[in-house]
Design a protein around this nucleic acid. Structure first.
Lengths: 329, 329
DNA sequence: CTGAAAGCGCTAACAT
DNA sequence: ATGTTAGCGCTTTCAG
């Protein structure tokens, strides 16, 4: 069974493809009778316009691309959900591509998306630098970023990471802690990949600590951060809070502390970041930094579509965050 | 800055587009010198072939579509990850579309995928019935299913849900439980949407219980299954196991039992299904049914691509499962 | 070795 | 009101 095209319909109805087009897209200049005949034939044959042909001539594909590291971290699954929903409501499809934090993969994917003529791209980049940005600038495809920021050429939607960590540190200070173990494994990739988010958070840590000269701290960036934490806990006898830059780190930490028989928060405090929904099932309930990641997803889709339609969108949009106090600290 | 096409290159090099094509896709019948010239020009201009044009003439888009309910349930996020990885390694892109368990949305999306000429579709359907299947059959686009099964026309890759629940019940029996609260909220949509998976599991429950006439049971399908469970627990004083058809239900149950101050597993046993990775962080550790969902994702992509290339794939592929014993039961 | 022409499926401008 | 033609960007066949 051959795929049926407008040409077939034209032949069957004894008219030309131009006329078929007029009927299908109900444009003026066609006799009601022939229109009916054509529509009926199309209906019966189960005709569906080919999107490739349409896209080629229209110059738009009504497709968005979203590039993220992976979808294991719940925060990105949630973001995607919201993004997809808004996109669909505007008639856009979305390609979800995962860079797996691999710089080459990311570049290949971006090229592919552009070659496929997506109308716009939302990107959480793992690449950075002038070469990368000029690559992105070569295309007229609108690109927005989230997570790791690029230069101001690319509108960015995210939270204020610096302020968020500052708030976290202040919260820790208020709770009377004297020492902070700051857990941010991605920091060790500094200079090799785009770690704008971890760096911003780290900057927030530094500036907050200046307000609290009484609080000492240790930064942990190793892959085996759990082991590193336990080693650190041996050394110091000051009242310690473990501040993790992601809930998924905090969950690992919590688990290992439990295994080691340590009491949270009495022996040591733990704080996370993201407020992923699975925290509902965790004990002890984790204090963390909360923000509406769905809001980010929605705004990304919305702004991207606006840009596609020629509107100017703000180069920076900050979504609010807050401290979600529970009982791990 | 205008997008550059093979036409531009042809003009610049003073040749025709056919020759440009020969150079770009290094086909024979071209003088090395002109080939060099063309490749150089293409390189300098940053030429990239347009995928729409290519797809139109080649008759393939090298794109796969995967349709699932959502990506909140971790099991589907994991499946997608594996699917995407295999697809990419074969040069395929993937459209991830979410039906949100809405039948109309699913149908609209499937139409869209076909109109966009995806080369194949992996589908966990929420629709069912002859009308739906004939809609799917109208296209020559290969379609595989996972999760809810359709008829044998659509190759299916999944676990043996019946056997899995039977194993779960046997495990519960061995542990000496006398009563089972079977939690499967989707069952209440029977007749309205495709709930093949829940039904298979339910069938597994029934047949297993025939082997254990001493075990009584109650089936819970209400949306407020947590409340229903607590009501049931009041009534019976037999040793009770709560068998949930998804870990996410089990997590909710565990949480509510904890809030109610009930001891698991001594006062009541709980068992889940899926062995999602977040179980690592849960206390008490949840006994559940384990299977390699990544394996399903990989096989889906692999088989789909085979079918696209004309191979015949088995109409049914069963991935193994096992009981993951922890300490909630 | 290269050019000319046709076609993938669609839309749009221009004739009749 | 309908037909004709051209073109989106690419590939492919057939001439030269």
């Amino acid at each position: 069974m051959q795929k049926i095209t407008s040409k077939h319909i034209a032949e069957i109805c004894g008219v030309t493809r131009g006329t078929v087009d007029r009927a299908l897209n109900n444009r003026p200049g066609i006799k009601p009778a022939t229109r009916e005949k054509i529509l009926k034939a199309a209906e019966e044959l189960g005709y569906r316009p080919d999107y490739l042909g349409q896209s080629l001539v229209r110059g738009e594909t009504r497709t968005l691309g979203i590039v993220m590291f992976d979808v294991h971290n719940r925060i990105f699954a949630q973001l995607f959900h919201a993004f997809e929903e808004v996109a669909r409501s505007h008639g856009y499809f979305v390609y979800l591509v995962l860079s797996h934090k691999d710089q080459a993969v990311e570049i290949e994917y971006i090229h592919n998306l552009i070659d496929r003529r997506v109308d716009g791209i939302a990107l959480n980049p793992i690449n950075e630098g002038a070469a990368f940005e000029s690559l992105l600038q070569k295309t007229r495809t609108p690109i927005l970023t989230f997570g790791n920021e690029l230069s101001a050429h690319f509108p960015h939607i995210w939270i204020d990471d610096q302020a968020a960590i500052q708030d976290a540190v202040n919260h820790i200070a208020v709770k009377g802690y004297q020492h902070i173990l700051y857990v941010s494994p991605p920091l060790r990739f500094k200079g090799r990949e785009n770690i704008h988010v971890p760096e911003q958070r780290y900057a927030g840590l530094q500036s907050a600590l200046q307000q609290h000269p009484d609080i000492s701290h240790t930064v942990i960036t190793s892959k085996d951060y759990v082991d590193a934490i336990h080693a650190e806990l041996q050394k110091s006898f000051r009242r310690t809070a473990i501040l993790c830059t992601s809930d998924i780190f905090a969950l690992e930490v919590l688990k290992s502390l439990k295994d080691a028989g340590m009491d949270v928060p009495h022996e040591v405090g733990v704080m996370g970041f993201d407020n992923i929904d699975m925290l509902n099932y965790i004990d002890p309930p984790l204090t963390t930094v909360d923000y509406q990641v769905e809001d980010i997803g929605r705004r990304l889709a919305d702004s991207l579509i606006r840009r596609i339609q020629g509107e100017v969108v703000p180069s920076r949009t900050i979504v609010t965050h807050s401290i979600m106090e529970r009982s791990s600290l």
